[in-house]
Amino acid sequence: MGLEAFNQSEPLTLGVELELQLLNTHDYDLAPYAEDMLRLMAKTPLPGSVVPEMTSSMIEISTAICHSASEVLGQLTPIRDALVRSADKLNIAVAGGGTHPFQKWHEQRIYDKPRFRELSDLYGYLAQQFTIFGQHVHIGCPDADAALLMLHRMSRYIPHFIALSASSPFVQGQDTAFDSARLNSVFAFPLSGRAPCVLTWGEFENYFDKMTGTGVVKSMKDFYWDIRPKPEFGTIEIRVFDTPLTIERAAALSGFVQSLAAWFLDTQPFTPQEDDYLVYTYNRFQACRFGMEAVYVDPGTGKHQPLRDHILHTMDQIAEHAARQGAAPSLHLLRADVEKAQNDARWLRERQREEQLLGETSRQAALRFRGQPV
């Protein structure tokens, strides 16, 4: 099957997907209630969609097409509120966060859906270990070639996205010393990583045809890249964000992406090239491991600097474009945390340091998702 045509979309439009945790209210471990949640949620007309994910303790919500971060928040809010009402009926809770702090992967059940069963057969235990939770942000692109340029320009900012969204310090009851341990599970998949550095859709079609010719790939869904084109939507999809603990932060992250994209389209600040990827894996590791304390190596200059400083510099560069897109409040929210070297991973560690009980940390994370004070 050939690569589908790249559909038209309105440039700089947004779509956001959030993978969420379903928790029991006894010890706040994961609970296999996806089917019940979907049944209850189907009774409420909402923007976007609510769908199952790989295992039965996960659920994914998504917005419809949005034009601003405030519209993203405006759609996520009623979906979140409906989730909370449905969860209360089932005596369970819903939470953000990139990993559940103490669930055991071997206890997770694959959701009964043909694609999930197929992936489970192919990847074995990795499919159950894929009980991790991410935010995906789609950004509309003018055309197919512009999408590839956007994708590779965005790749320089993957460490920024990781550090700003990191919310997965705990895995299987242990502090991993990573701010984003979730991505370590993604990296285990053979088709993860980065897209090939091709800058025209014709070249990308040739690459896709070669990959499908090997029998390894059937569709774009088989690529678990950090950013991938979504031709059916006319977007690129950024996939490295951990699910934040609040919908406000999720919306702010989409505003940051939109502001970057507007800057790229307006000024075309640099031409992507293969050498940009010389430090890609190193920068990504630094952001996963150290979050706001990471070192960033500029692909263009080779200069080493604190990632926090580069994030703040980037926010200054795109401030005018953020204002035009109505995303200035998004940058303000994120900047305040960057200046304090704060992210959700640090918040979770602070809660655990105080409580000394991961179940209580998860309970407080669920309260934050509800929008209640902790």
Rank of each mutant, 00 (worst) to 15 (best):
T77Y: 07
L22H: 01
E71P: 09
V338P: 14
D209H: 09
Y282C: 07
E203G: 01
L164M: 15
S68W: 09
E205F: 02
Q273N: 09
R109A: 11
T77C: 05
D309H: 14
W201F: 11
F161V: 04
G173W: 07
D242H: 08
L3W: 01
F161T: 01
L3C: 02
Q356E: 06
T131F: 03
L253D: 04
S165C: 09
A5R: 12
Q8T: 11
H136C: 07
R249W: 09
E118Y: 12
M315A: 04
L260Y: 00
Q172G: 12
T25M: 05
L357F: 10
T246K: 09
Q75L: 06
A144V: 10
M154Q: 06
T235C: 13
L183F: 00
A322G: 15
G124L: 11
D266T: 13
D266W: 11
S219A: 14
P329W: 10
F256S: 00
A323W: 15
D27H: 00
D179G: 00
Q258E: 13
N283M: 04
R194T: 14
D309K: 15
G74R: 07
P373N: 13
A195D: 15
H152F: 01
S192N: 01
E71S: 11
L191H: 12
I59N: 03
Q372F: 11
R39Y: 10
H100G: 01
C66L: 06
P229K: 00
L30D: 00
P101D: 06
E17W: 01
G140S: 13
V240T: 13
A195V: 14
L334T: 09
Q174Y: 05
P329A: 12
P299S: 08
L18K: 02
P299M: 08
L260W: 02
M315G: 02
E71K: 10
G359C: 13
L357V: 03
L348D: 01
Y296I: 04
A366F: 06
L149A: 01
F208D: 00
Q317T: 13
G326M: 09
V257S: 08
N283K: 04
P78E: 12
Q268C: 07
K230F: 08
E107Y: 09
Q103E: 14
Y280T: 02
T361S: 14
P114D: 11
H136K: 10
R109C: 12
F369S: 00
F256T: 04
L333R: 15
F133Y: 13
P190Q: 14
E274W: 04
I59V: 13
S120C: 12
C66G: 08
A5Y: 08
G255P: 13
